[in-house]
């Protein structure tokens, strides 16, 4: 179970997130929605340690943790970026196995085996030796998912997973998210604009409110 308690995040003097509280149960899919500029991406970046919060606590199974100082034995979050951010200089298989080898100290065959299983599950068999530029957008996204999963995170976070996809691929990533929930027991957080998609896949929907707008009203 992940809990966010009184999370406050400011950029300069602008408060983006104000004393935000949120709980996600294991194996749950949480959709984070809200107007543009409300702070959805910011929330995800705080949770994945890319931004420091100004105050508040993160708890994983009632134990406080600092997302900006992850430990290799207990990777809480994995991230699938909106633009995927695959490493263009590495083949698909190397994109997936690089961190497990370097960070988790898995040996080659172990890392390869995990990666091949993931590629198989995500319908990417045969793409091992290609480079990211040789894949379609949807395939790149699935590689990004595989790369994040290979680090065995407790929670997988997505920023706008459907924004660059056509309707067929949107349905496919929806399926994958549900498959990860059912088969891999994955807890997942999805930031999205897409209310239909949120209703389709999520167990819980959380709305981030735009603070500045509220003040103006």
């Amino acid at each position: 179970m992940l809990e966010l308690k009184n999370i406050t995040k400011k950029f300069g003097s602008r408060t983006i997130l104000n004393k935000l509280n949120l709980t996600i149960l294991d194996q749950e899919i949480l959709a984070i929605v809200g107007p543009s500029g409300a702070g959805k991406t910011t929330l995800l970046r705080c949770l994945s340690g890319l931004e420091k919060v100004d105050s508040g606590q993160f708890l994983w199974n009632n134990q406080e943790f600092d997302p900006t100082e992850p430990s290799k034995d207990n990777q809480i979050t994995g991230v699938v970026f909106q633009s995927y951010e695959l490493f263009p200089n590495l083949t698909i298989i190397d994109n997936i196995t690089l961190a497990p080898r370097l960070v988790l100290k898995e040996d080659n065959s172990q890392a390869l085996q995990t990666a091949k299983q993931l590629l198989h599950d995500l319908d990417l068999t045969g793409k091992e030796e290609l480079y990211p530029y040789q894949l379609s957008g949807g395939q790149k996204q699935r590689v990004a998912i595989a790369r994040a999963l290979a680090m065995k995170p407790q929670i997988l976070c997505y920023d706008e997973p459907t924004s660059a996809l056509d309707p067929a691929l949107r349905a496919k990533v929806g399926e994958i998210i549900l498959q990860l929930k059912n088969n891999n027991k994955m807890t997942q957080i999805i930031v999205t604009h897409d209310m239909d998609f949120a209703h389709q896949v999520a167990d819980q929907i959380f709305t981030v409110k735009a603070l500045d707008f509220k003040k103006v009203d």
Partner: peptide, 13 residues
């Protein structure tokens, strides 16, 4: 792109 550093960072490199 900055995203390259960020994705390496979340992978704990």
């Amino acid at each position: 792109p900055g995203g390259q550093y960020e994705s390496a960072h979340v992978l704990q490199l």
